[in-house]
């Protein structure tokens, strides 16, 4: 049985996750399986449907931003989807790359708020908080992205659109190489059948990781990591009583995520060199001197 203080921590981290992320696995699965009362996502499977989606989804997401929560709009210079519209004159691959950046920036903002709500995180040295986010956000982002993916494609624009895997593969290189490794990871990761409560603890464990380069107070971060990992282990045992190897299998995914991020950073570096495209300042900060 799980001690009472562990149960409290599970609830706090799960609540922080549900509060801070606009999309979660339960919502995404409802949309992907067609079990929602909302309109079906607009399917983007070629350049024509992509261009149509740029016009309709941008308007839709913007309307939602103005009417909805301001939670994720802390960086005043970023409005996802608007970027896509403003860059319409540029070629499709580059525009898609910019849309991905806007979504990434939004998720990094949400992840920061989530991290701040993890008990103990804000007591860490501010430099260490920066380090943990710098190295953790992309691993966390690809974990969360898996919830929006199935073998055929990925949900975008808060579930308003669905980009097919085949369309992403058909883009010119290097853009075509961008998403396929994420789909492969997502297929393996989704077979673990985690729910949002499991994912919330896993994402917290990714962020609070004691072996990131340049940490000032390693023992304090390790102590926080140890607490979260123990809570994750106990939570998995109670939440998945018939899958006793889930915890070790999940820990193995941490290594896969590191590899995925290293590959991704290299690809972004290549795109920066060979394409006439810009990188958002927040993402520049994260990638700079990363690995």
């Amino acid at each position: 049985p799980m001690p009472a203080d562990h149960k409290v921590l599970v609830r706090q981290i799960h609540d922080a996750y549900m509060k801070n992320f606009t999309m979660n696995k339960a919502k995404a699965r409802l949309i992907l399986t067609g079990k929602t009362s909302k309109p079906q996502p607009f399917i983007i499977h070629n350049m024509e449907t992509f261009q149509l989606a740029e016009k309709t989804l941008a308007a839709h997401v913007l309307a939602e931003h103005h009417g909805g929560s301001e939670n994720s709009l802390h960086i005043g210079d970023v409005v996802p989807a608007l970027g896509c519209g403003m860059l319409r004159q540029r070629e499709a691959e580059a525009r898609l790359f910019h849309c991905c950046q806007s979504t990434s920036v939004e998720t990094v903002t949400e992840l920061t708020e989530f991290a701040k709500a993890v008990p103990g995180f804000q007591s860490l040295d501010l430099n260490d908080q920066v380090t943990l986010l710098k190295y953790g956000v992309y691993e966390a982002l690809f974990t969360l992205l898996a919830s929006c993916m199935n073998k055929d494609g990925v949900l975008v624009a808060r579930g308003g659109g669905f980009i097919t895997r085949e369309f992403l593969k058909s883009l010119r290189r290097p853009f075509s190489d961008m998403m396929e490794p994420k789909f492969q990871f997502a297929t393996r990761f989704n077979s673990l059948e985690l729910d949002d409560s499991d994912l919330s603890l896993f994402v917290a464990a990714i962020i609070c990781c004691g072996d990131r380069p340049g940490l000032v107070d390693v023992p304090l971060v390790e102590q926080l990591q140890e607490t979260i990992v123990q809570v994750l282990r106990l939570h998995l045992l109670t939440n998945h009583p018939n899958d006793s190897f889930l915890f070790p299998r999940l820990l193995q995914k941490l290594a896969d995520l590191r590899e995925l991020v290293t590959e991704h950073a290299q690809l972004v570096e290549d795109i920066k060199k060979t394409e006439d495209t810009s990188l958002h300042p927040l993402l520049q900060e994260i990638y700079r001197d990363m690995y």
């Binding site: 509060k19 802390h74 903002t109 708020e113 709500a117 430099n127 920066v130 986010l133 340049g214």
Partner: peptide, 20 residues
């Protein structure tokens, strides 16, 4: 480190919507 990561730093220092 915070100097080289001004936006991350700012996001961390911003008062969280959860605090209010």
């Amino acid at each position: 480190l915070t100097e080289r990561h001004k936006i991350l730093h700012r996001l961390l220092q911003d008062s969280s919507p959860n605090d209010s």
